[in-house]
């Protein structure tokens, strides 16, 4: 048997030159990326550096950082919102995934939960915002019910704030998404690993700290980063829930496209979009770096 690790050899081959015939199959993929990813990115990046009449300028970028600009606070809100809902969603979702994985594999519970989460993870946007308003707003059924019971729920303004209501609403799709993407990793855990740990003298704590934890960590971090970008770029849910202001970046970008106040404002929107692309690219880079470290032992 060759002494070189099998996986490294494969990776080299994939990264190296391939005869052109082999490329024919990936043409649709390239067409797809070009139309839906590459061209929009170029439009955004170019637009960020030209003014209303197409002349090159740095004004759009400068406008983002200006003292009157609301972009930096919005970016901060977006980052906090995404980090908090990603981490919270990841932790709760991971615990739920573990609970589901311990259920009987062919049982009703597991099928029900995974199907439900499949729906909930996609249940964003207007429908979700509406469901929350119908529940928690001043006229919402939970509020009305509690009021009838004599419990004062106070103002329902919290529902429309980015760091309260919006966070809660985001968790509503973040947790199910985590459960779905993390479940395969949890189910890949072999019962023999725990039993081997025990026979070798380890405790349950040893098992989680030395075996299951390290094995699950790359998947957990990858899934958390996915949740982060999911929250960071979400638009519809926030737009439906918050109509008075634009506390987060996607809403600000949306605002620049609908406002007719200043000509060239659209390109400031493109500058904001570019900033978002930069953040997402950073996250992807982080992910790739972590993935490379883990792939020394991961089998794909």
């Amino acid at each position: 048997m060759a002494d070189r690790p099998v996986l490294t050899g494969t990776r080299r081959a994939l990264g190296g030159f391939r005869p052109s015939g082999a490329l024919a199959g990936v043409v649709p993929f390239f067409a797809y990326t070009t139309v839906f990813l590459l061209i929009p990115t170029i439009v955004v990046v170019v637009g960020a550096f030209v003014d209303g009449s197409g002349r090159p300028t740095l004004d759009n970028i400068a406008a983002l950082g200006g003292s009157t600009s609301s972009f930096l606070p919005a970016l901060q809100h977006s980052l906090v919102l995404s980090v908090v809902t990603a981490v919270t969603g990841a932790v709760i979702g991971a615990v739920l995934a573990y609970a589901v994985s311990t259920a009987r594999p062919d049982g009703m519970l597991k099928r029900f939960v995974t199907a439900l989460c499949g729906v909930l993870a996609q249940f964003g946007g207007v429908a979700l915002a509406f469901a929350f308003m119908a529940t928690f707003s001043l006229q919402g059924f939970l509020t009305v019910w509690l009021t009838n019971l004599g419990i004062d729920t106070g103002s329902s303004l919290w529902l429309y704030q980015w760091d309260k209501g919006l966070m809660l609403v985001y968790l509503y799709f973040q947790i199910p998404l985590m459960l779905i993407v993390f479940l395969p990793a949890v189910e890949g855990i072999k019962p023999q690993w725990r039993e081997a740990t025990e026979t070798l003298g380890g405790t349950t704590w040893t098992y989680w700290r030395r075996v299951a934890g390290p094995i699950l960590m790359p998947s957990f971090i990858g899934a958390t980063l996915l949740l982060f970008t999911n929250a960071f770029s979400a638009y519809a849910t926030a737009a439906a829930l918050i109509s008075q202001a634009s506390p987060i970046v996607p809403l600000q970008i949306g605002g620049t496209f609908t406002s007719e106040v200043i000509l060239g404002q659209e390109n400031v929107g493109k500058a904001m979009a570019m900033a978002m692309v930069v953040v997402v690219a950073l996250v992807m880079w982080l992910y790739a770096w972590l993935d490379k470290r883990a792939s020394r032992w991961l089998v794909r």
């Binding site: 072999k190 023999q192 740990t197 025990e198 070798l200 003298g201 405790t203 390290p214 094995i215 991961l298």
Partner: peptide, 29 residues
């Protein structure tokens, strides 16, 4: 309990810790 019994166990398959090398697996206990 199992972890106090001092038993060496070999399972049918898939029992090696995948994130450890052969040496690290052997050293674990």
């Amino acid at each position: 309990p199992t972890n106090k019994r001092d038993m060496g166990m070999v399972f049918q398959a898939y029992s090696l810790f995948p994130h450890m090398t052969a040496r690290q697996n052997v050293e674990f206990g």
